[in-house]
Nucleic acid binder design. Structure first.
Lengths: 345, 345
DNA sequence: TTGAAAGCGCTAACAT
DNA sequence: ATGTTAGCGCTTTCAA
């Protein structure tokens, strides 16, 4: 195959008998050229298949039509859905996205921030993770938008999140309405703001419905173990210790699934003996058996709002101060894991 | 927070009283400077928090320490696993990756190839998708490595894939060994090479074990419908048409799950009445009920081999010609969906 | 409406 | 061992 060489503005200029400045103006449609030159230049550009050398443009402008996307782990359905939607949004706008998988490693996150900065990304999107954003490693004043991550006192940062408090409340309420009295919560320990809010919702719901709060039913898993396996173990432990419970709110679907498997191992029937509800509504919740009731987060709104805000900030549109924080509503998805016994009807 | 301005080599040079060339040499450890200057320069660099402006470096070198990653849909566990591993590999090597989600859209793929080229990526990795690689839009001579995608006559392209033929064979053999006689295959139509190979393996296994091949049991779904839902519908159709079968090989786990749901809807018991096997071993196969036997692809080897090859090519290491094509073995994972009836023991 | 020229930050050829 | 300088491809100021 014949390889066409990378042709530059300079050559386009020569071929169309104008200066490089004029070519640049035509390309960027910056005015100050005649219709006739426009035609001639565009003709040559098309003929030679010219494309802009983005590295040169980025160097000159300290801008790159690129955003950085920080994500804890892309091999997690919930995050990958968000990433997909964000990527879609920015492709439309002619931006590329650098995906940066941190694996929850703070050092990796810092390294990525530096790298993104040196590559002149125009903005950064952070999904979940710690509150502290390592902005001190960034030399430029670029906007940062967070999803499900409340940035700590940082002037440039905005955030969008689901209403986790409401989610925790609704989940707990669903269990209460289906007759549960002793409701356990299986969550992740440490200061991830989203889990704190879900826990608060849970506590408020108990209070509102006059149920007691049992500290031994608050299973806060270690971050390294706050997954399917950890939840399974935790629920086994609870059973072994003969602590009674009839409902479980797990703060994500994988943990909820771990709980269901743990219960089944102990011949406890879901939902007859114990009801379970999760959070997120990823595919496992509808495919597992029994199917899992859960709180659905609106991925598309989350991704679109966050992307729109970042885009506007990068393009210096006015953003209302009230838009610094965006809360997206959640909804209850009722499936089999919180069904009442038929005999109770 | 005090913002340190982006400091350049020029300023570092002035501050450490050497020329820019020397600073560049120290940074890139290119020799031709004394130990003493090295110390002095590095001291200043550290003190002022200098980091390389990658856009300038990329422009100058026509290289960017960046790779493009073409993936059909990141919100697909199988692909996101691959992406995760690839990203890990390149982070180690100090490369960034541009993720490009094509949603199977050829136009989007072409747009991305152009964009990657203009951003001076050093190489491109393609996961799955069509055979035709739009290399004609790329002006530079960069290496391309494909995973599960056999590139059509392109000099620069290498590929790595699982042994899909063997996978198809093993899956079918597993069903045969568990007593199935009339084995259906639920796959995706059109010329995606991996599915063709899986089909070939299926046919060969039937032949080797002296079973007849029934064309009415080859359910080749339309690409737009080759998912969970499509498989469910297809199996319902088969049942409605009263075509007998006692085993199903679905060429991915989501289609296998669709088949199982379809069977359950018709009160057909898996595995007692019909046995089912899938492909990939994504999380649904172990979490669904009954758990799904499947063919496991070795994600980590796939990602690492492909990444290593791309890395070597980008760094002009010698690659053996025999390494142009890499086949990774697969293995059978036996779960409940292909269990023999207890009564048969 | 157009052009000349400076300069973004870096590397490397060449000179010393 | 170190410095000078050209130039990667682009935008933009200033002048015409």
């Amino acid at each position: 195959m014949e390889k066409k060489r990378n042709i530059s503005i300079k050559e386009i200029a020569k071929l169309s008998q104008v200066s490089v400045a004029t070519v640049s103006r035509v390309i960027n449609n910056n005015g100050r050229f005649s219709e006739e030159t426009r035609k001639r230049v565009q003709e040559v550009i098309k003929q030679y298949g010219y494309t802009t050398n983005m590295t040169a443009k980025s160097l000159r402008m300290s801008k790159s039509k690129t955003v950085g996307l920080i994500v804890p782990s892309i091999d997690n359905e919930w995050f990958s859905h968000l990433v997909l939607e964000i990527e879609k949004y920015f492709f439309e706008k002619n931006y590329s996205v650098f995906i940066c998988n941190t694996s929850q490693d703070e050092q990796k996150e810092i390294a990525y921030f530096k790298s993104l900065d040196s590559k002149m990304v125009d903005g950064i999107m952070c999904i979940s993770g710690i509150e502290e954003i390592p902005t001190d490693v960034i030399t430029r004043n670029i906007p940062i938008v967070c999803i499900d991550r409340k940035p700590k006192d940082h002037a440039n940062a905005y955030y969008v999140e689901s209403n986790h408090y409401s989610g925790g409340y609704l989940a707990t309420e669903e269990l209460i309405k289906k007759g549960c009295k002793r409701i356990a919560i299986v969550s992740r320990n440490k200061t991830l703001s989203v889990n704190k809010q879900r826990l608060e919702g849970y506590r408020q719901a108990l209070k509102d419905y006059g149920l007691e709060e049992y500290s031994e039913l608050q299973l806060l898993l270690d971050p390294s173990d706050a997954n399917y396996e950890g939840a399974r173990k935790a629920i086994n432990e609870l059973i072994k210790n003969k602590i009674p419970f009839d409902g479980v709110f797990a703060t994500n679907d994988w943990r909820a699934y771990g709980v269901m498997v743990g219960l089944t191992e102990n011949n406890i029937i879901v939902p007859d003996d114990v009801k379970v509800i999760g959070f997120d509504d990823i595919s496992i919740s509808s495919s597992c058996h029994p199917s899992l009731s859960t709180i659905r987060q609106d991925v598309i709104s989350l991704a679109n709002e966050a992307s729109r805000i970042l885009f506007d900030l990068m393009n210096e549109k006015e953003i209302e101060v009230s838009q610094r924080r965006y809360i997206i509503p959640v909804e209850v998805i009722r499936r089999d894991s919180t069904k009442k016994k038929i005999s109770q009807f």
